[in-house]
């Protein structure tokens, strides 16, 4: 089962905690039979209150980084999307919390328009990707999402990917060897599953009606990221920097697979503008990403040679050289 399903308890986390935190600060009673008795009562009350608030805190924190069968998972909201980080192993609880904090910190740096090493790194990577894609990826053209406050830049096509890389690095440096990071559709698979197999990530079929499978295909990922870009679900949100219009390249869904989620993220956005042939050309000429899976508006699936070994599908597909 997808690891991100531990929703019921986790989603309540932040509200529940603020709601219950003042247990120890509860105003004390009014009736004062006698001073000594009052003191006694107060002491008892305090003892109860602190015991209960301690218990609540313990329970609620446990639900923040909920234990899973093999480790811990955390779900949170950042960069306008729901994110889950799930890791396996003994010390995974602290590790997933650390990864979450890294993503949250990046999210607020971007929202605040703050200058930081990470924001600078995103900006310089974005510039690199603009060059690589011949301008098809361009954060200077403000789209509809995630515009960094005051900067005039739209980091929506790269920030989540960068955040996934941050989270993966954070987990790895905490010693995690098995984790799945899902930042609102930007997936990073760290290591292998507890059973030793690769992480299986389904690419949703943009045209599920009448299809045999809900997936256009399934990727088997180990230490790889996959990022999908498409408009069938969220409506037109990718702008062609060349024309200033919503991009129309004949592609319904593009998934880019590689070691850098930020690069995958930027390329998936750019490919949407570039169309199939140019995108295939770019992947042939560079090794910034492992490969990609394209689904055309007509439903045809094309994958690159680089991902042939990790892609399976119940539908027919073509391998492009």
């Amino acid at each position: 089962m997808p690891l991100g399903r531990a929703k019921p308890s986790i989603a309540l986390c932040s509200q529940a905690r603020t709601g219950n935190a003042p247990a120890g600060a509860e105003p004390l009673g009014r009736a004062k039979p006698s001073p000594s008795r009052e003191t006694r009562l107060r002491a008892r009350r305090r003892a109860y209150a602190s015991f209960i608030s301690l218990l609540c805190t313990v329970l609620l924190c446990a639900s923040c980084a909920a234990k899973t069968a093999n480790g811990a998972a955390v779900e949170f909201f950042a960069m306008d999307t729901v994110m889950t980080i799930a890791a396996n192993g003994a010390d995974s609880e602290a590790a997933v919390n650390g990864a979450r904090d890294a993503v949250l910190a990046l999210g607020s740096e971007i929202t605040d328009g703050a200058s930081s090493a990470d924001v600078d790194a995103i900006l310089s990577l974005a510039e690199e990707m603009r060059g690589l894609t011949g301008g098809a990826f361009d954060i200077r053209y403000p789209g509809s999402e995630n515009a960094a406050a005051g900067s005039g830049f739209d980091l929506g096509g790269i920030a989540k990917g960068y955040a996934a890389d941050l989270a993966a690095d954070s987990l790895r440096s905490a010693g995690v060897t098995s984790a799945l990071i899902d930042l609102g559709g930007n997936i990073y698979a760290v290591g292998v599953k507890p059973d030793g197999g690769p992480w299986r990530v389904g690419i949703r079929n943009p045209f599920p009606d009448g299809a045999d499978s809900p997936y256009a295909g399934v990727l088997s990922l180990t230490d790889l990221s996959a990022v999908t870009s498409g408009e069938y679900e969220r409506g037109a949100h990718i702008i062609d920097p060349g024309t200033g219009e919503a991009a129309q390249s004949g592609l319904a869904s593009i998934t880019v697979i590689g070691e850098s989620s930020a690069v995958c993220d930027a390329l998936a956005t750019a490919f949407y503008v570039m169309g199939l042939e140019k995108s295939l050309g770019l992947l042939r000429d560079t090794d910034v990403a492992l490969g990609a899976v394209f689904v055309s508006n007509g439903g045809a699936i094309t994958i690159t040679r680089g991902v042939a070994e990790i892609f399976t599908s119940e539908s027919a597909y073509e391998i492009a050289d």
């Binding site: 997808p2 799945l180 990530v201 389904g202 256009a216 399934v218």
Partner: peptide, 10 residues
Amino acid sequence: PPSAVDAELG
């Protein structure tokens, strides 16, 4: 049935 995939994209 337990899901055939660990996560979904797209």
